[in-house]
Amino acid sequence: MPEAAVGGAVHGSGHPVHVDGEVVATKRIGGYQHLTLTAPGVPEGFRAGNFVAVSVAGHVARRALWIHRVRASSAFGPTLDVVVERRGDGSGWLAAQPVGTRIAITGPLGRPFALPKEAVSCLLVGEGYAAAPLFPLAERLRERGCAVSLVVSAPDESRLLSALEARRSARSVTVLTADGSVGLRGRVGDHVGDLLARSEADVVYAAGPHEVLRAAASAAERVGAWSQVAVETWTPCGTGLCHGCPLPVVGEDGVARVVRACTEGPVVRGDRVRWDDL
């Protein structure tokens, strides 16, 4: 079973690096911009659930981005993919950068998803661009012989990450959109209980907005399954230095604490998050 991911060691991913990276491909898919970056040392140390912190011209704070995929080799050497939603001037800048732009990248950062020791069955639930880390997770789980059921959700079709490739690693893929434009209509909260029952999963992994994480964690708790959630918060530095990304949790000793989402998280056990305080 996955270990509790609250408190303890620094940087779950071993040794992050701060390097000069480069945009080697950029592609608009639906509402998101998919960037492929070189960042020597980052793809090599990657585990599913890690993120990178990137610098944006003219800005002091970093922008955290989930790592969606790594390739061990390509014409450019090892690369990593991130999915950018244009929300503010930082993400807008990133999405607009052409191939060849150099970007300072720090990573891999944060505690990744813990993998089960045995070949159990797993339900993966993600929404929007934040579903990105579930795709490499699905591959890792399949390699370990786990049966993977993947649920990809979005407000509408334009914000649905393509599950096409994931069909190779997942036993079943369910698509949900809030407006019903494709797949089942509704939100994760409406369907996760049924989907969990059908998958008979022992472990639930979730990535997305807080309400999605909470719905997945509560569904897991109701049936006695483990859950791990990748909590996205505003992380000014991403490296654990500033304490600017508080994540309220309950420690293994039952004591309420506030930890750093970027360092003790972003992946934590779903039953340890104090959702009302988040």
């Binding site: 704070a61 505003w234 000014p236 508080p246």
Partner: peptide, 23 residues
């Protein structure tokens, strides 16, 4: 000390505004 509530840090032109609350 647990520190203050989020947001603890905001970005402004030329710097950051912080009220981390000494966690």
């Amino acid at each position: 000390r647990p520190g203050g509530a989020a947001p603890r840090v905001a970005e402004v032109p030329g710097g950051l505004v912080n009220a981390v609350g000494l966690p």
